[in-house]
Write a protein that binds this DNA or RNA. Structure first.
Length: 752
RNA sequence: UGGGGUAUCGCCAAGCGGUAAGGCACUAGUUUUUGGUACUGGUAUUCGGGGGUUCGAAUCCCUCUACCCCAUCCA
């Protein structure tokens, strides 16, 4: 496995954890709920979890998150296992189930109750919701929250034994009913469910909720990195609360979130997928039009192509919608080098070669020259052949390369033919072409000297086999479908009477084929029989001709005007803020932006005032405070900072007197943040005094210039952006110590 | 509306103060017995908007805007 040099953010985190020693072994898990068929979004999650485990020599578990017995089923467990296996991954040990941990999780619940951190609530459901408050209003705690530990223990035990009906009681964590994060308002831990669990049977009358079971299952399995999708960001606080409150010792897992996969012209939610399957809009979970793993598999996609796709879309935190063309590229790219080329005519038009007698068998390679694979078959040839109806036009546009009354074509792997007569039926439809072949033009030994613009596919009429071909188009006709209204009515086209060359059926050189000039096809794994072969179209070839045709018909896309940005209103300053602001502007002559940020933040202004009392340099001080200090204050409180205003004043002093440059000041400040050391001490220890001597700098510039002759050329040719490049190089060479202003000046001079 | 996120080309996406990577799509050309493939070029003076700091900002600060997630006894 080659590790790409540019890592995604998850791998960056994992590597940092390994380096810091926080993690000894990387353990991940793929934890789906078995309540539906996995789709390509799951494939992304599988690729991430199993991929990271493999890249860092760890392991990945497959865990069924089966905490809700009303929705889950063993048939989905099988589909999930199939998907992981098909994609080529191996999970560590047996398949895990959250239900295997029910006893342990229950024990942890008892522990929380004993700690006074969990209680049995007996409020009805709607009141619980009401008590929770809203996003803007705090909630209030149930009166049952005051029950004693003994009462809670007793009640919970009886819940477990099944003494109560569904909904009568629940177990909740006692956290904070007014937390800004709604998830923390005394989250539910256990609910009563008198239903049979598909694995645990009727052992349990209570089932743990996701937020309680998931973190503990991760912990029990020794997971180091619990990777999930963005919508669980708010749940991370509970995840950590449970683990921390229980005092669980390392190694404990940490949760990280990434954006789920979206693809246009399809849907990815389990709910919508289920609707399509149950509503009969598609033919089961493995319908080739569906973005389910089973669907892609049946359609003919390879696991390699799905994995390549997951890799190509990357991992990030921005919600996004990937274009299907990216997926289509991946499968074409994979199949191009793998599968044999054969000929199949989807919409046959009869061609009679009036000057050909008898029959023969032609040799034809399964692969073009640019595919390094061996293999060939015999192609029967005779007077009666069929070509694609699209490949003949009586009145063609001028960029049409195929057969016309005036234009000859080659029958791929055979002879060049020329149209002599067009036969039509009563309605004017072309039913036959009478043509002549050139005997000297035989493929491989062409002495005819005839030049043609294209070679078309064909089959011999007598020996060709009749096959069914299923052509799939995108499931929906809009990019971001909402309802069944958006479905594409033509997403499935069944061609009953396509004609294929006999070798495909008799020799079966592969399961997947490229039907020349048309696309990639796959023998349907369910319906294919030798008597009645059925092929699924996996994806078409790129086809610039088809595109030209269709784009000429459709209207040009409307260009969306850029939305005009309207500025919102800024909150007015309070009176004291206004007074401060005025003082900064009038007395200290600060720039109004800086004065504004300072005045609006009490901590910042206090810090600033203190520094100002040390050093009378209002402008420089204000700049450092509103930029650097403000950043640190965003992360932690004033009292937690390791540096103080006096030190910042000292830092500004050595900037002002030219001892160090602004650039070095950033470096010094960073050190102050970390260690709280004095700036002049840092400068001394690290030897950071600025170099302003033009002679020294000049020498370094020369060096940089001789090392980068190309860029010198480019600069002289007018690429002025490169000035920054040279300055950067010089600064790098001096460890940042060169006086950037001097460098700038000298570089500009030398490069003139 | 409180909290948590996100914003870089038509679509993904790197980038973490010093020349705006890469892929898809698009486009022009070369090769081609697939209008395929391969190859070669062209595609962001600019990073959601506006300010500020800096010799230098996609990167640091302020501010505004847009979108996503959270008020299931779902996960």
């Amino acid at each position: 496995m080659t590790m790409s040099e540019r890592k995604d953010f998850l791998r960056t985190i994992v590597e940092a954890d390994i380096e810091s020693g926080k993690v000894k072994e990387v353990v991940t898990r793929f934890p789906p709920e078995p309540n539906g068929f996995p789709h390509i979004g799951h494939a992304k999650s599988i690729a991430i979890n199993f991929g990271i485990a493999r890249d860092y020599n760890g392991h990945c578990n497959l865990r069924m998150d089966d905490t809700n017995p009303t929705k889950e089923d063993t048939k989905y467990v099988q589909a999930l296992k199939d998907a992981v296996e098909w994609l080529g991954f191996e999970w560590e040990g047996n398949v895990r189930y959250t239900s295997d941990y029910f006893t342990q999780i229950h024990d942890y619940a008892i522990q929380l109750i004993k700690m006074g951190k969990a209680y049995v609530d007996s409020l009805p459901e709607d009141e619980i919701r009401e008590y929770r408050g809203t996003v803007t209003e705090a909630g209030k705690r149930s009166k049952y929250a005051d029950r004693t530990v003994q009462e809670n223990l007793d009640l919970f035990e009886r819940m477990k034994k099944g003494e109560f009906k569904d909904g009568e009681h629940i177990l909740r964590a006692k956290i904070d009913m007014s937390a800004a994060n709604m998830k923390l308002r005394d989250p539910l831990l256990y609910r009563i469910r008198h239903v049979e669990h598909f694995r645990a049977g009727n052992t349990w009358a209570v089932y743990p909720m996701y937020d309680f079971a998931h973190c503990l299952s991760d912990y029990i399995e020794g997971v180091s990195h619990s990777i999930c999708t963005l919508e669980f960001e708010n749940n991370r606080d509970i995840y950590n609360w449970v683990l921390e409150t229980l005092g669980l010792t390392p190694v404990r897992p940490y949760q990280h979130e990434f954006a789920r996969l979206g693809i246009n012209y399809t849907v990815m939610s389990k709910r919508k997928l289920l609707e399509l399957v149950e509503g009969g809009q598609v033919d089961g979970w493995d319908d080739p039009r569906l973005p389910t793993i089973a669907g892609y598999k049946r359609r003919g996609y390879t696991p390699e192509s799905i994995l390549a796709f997951c890799d190509s879309v990357g991992i990030a935190k921005a919600n996004s919608m990937v274009d299907v063309s990216q997926l289509e590229f991946c499968i074409r790219d994979d199949l191009n080098l793998k599968v044999p080329r054969v000929m199949c005519v989807l919409d046959p038009l009869k061609v009679t070669l009036v000057n050909y007698e008898g029959s023969e068998e032609l040799d034809a390679s399964y692969y073009p020259d640019d595919v390094p694979k061996e293999g060939s078959r015999k192609l029967p040839f005779s007077r009666d052949i069929c070509i694609e109806r699209d490949d003949f036009m009586e009145n063609p546009p001028k960029d049409y390369f195929r057969l016309t009354p005036e234009q000859s074509v080659r029958l791929k792997g055979a002879y060049i033919i020329t149209c002599k007569e067009v036969i039509k039926d009563a309605s004017g439809k072309i039913i036959e072409i009478k043509a002549e072949y050139s005997k000297e033009s035989k493929s491989g030994s062409d002495t005819s000297g005839i030049k043609v613009k294209s070679a078309i596919h064909w089959v011999d009429a007598k020996s060709a086999k009749k096959v069914e071909v299923r052509v799939y188009d995108r499931l929906y006709s809009v990019e971001a479908p909402e309802t069944v209204e958006d479905l594409n009515a033509n997403s499935l086209k069944i061609i009953k009477n396509a004609l294929i060359e006999p070798a495909v059926i008799n020799e079966k050189p592969d399961e997947r084929f490229q039907f020349e000039r048309q696309g990639y096809f796959y023998g349907d794994p369910v319906d294919y029989t030798d008597a009645k072969p059925v092929f699924n179209k996996i994806v078409g070839l790129k086809g610039s001709w088809d595109k030209k045709k269709t784009s000429a018909q459709t209207q040009p896309k409307k260009v969306e005007a850029k939305k005009e940005q309207v500025d919102g209103e800024v909150v007015a300053m309070s009176q004291t803020q206004q007074e401060l602001f005025d003082k900064y502007i009038n007395e200290l002559k600060l720039n109004s932006e800086v004065a504004n940020t300072l005045a609006r933040d009490a901590q910042l202004s206090a810090f600033y005032e203190e520094a100002l009392s040390q050093l009378n340099s209002p402008t420089s001080l204000s700049n450092i405070v509103t930029n650097e200090v403000a950043r640190e204050l965003k992360q932690m409180a004033l009292s937690e900072l390791k540096f103080n205003a006096v030190q910042v004043a000292e830092l500004v002093k050595i900037i002002d007197d030219g001892t160090i440059s602004n650039k070095i000041a950033k470096q010094v400040f960073e050190e102050m943040v970390k260690s709280g050391a004095n700036p002049s001490k840092i400068v001394e220890d690290k030897g950071l005094v600025q170099i302003s001597d033009p002679a020294i700098i000049s020498a370094i510039i020369d060096e940089v210039m001789t090392k980068n002759p190309d860029n010198v050329e480019k600069f002289k040719a007018g690429n002025k952006k490169l000035l920054g490049f040279f300055v950067g190089q010089v600064l790098k060479a001096t460890g940042g110590k060169a006086n950037p202003q001097v460098v700038n000046q000298l570089v500009a001079q030398k490069l003139k």
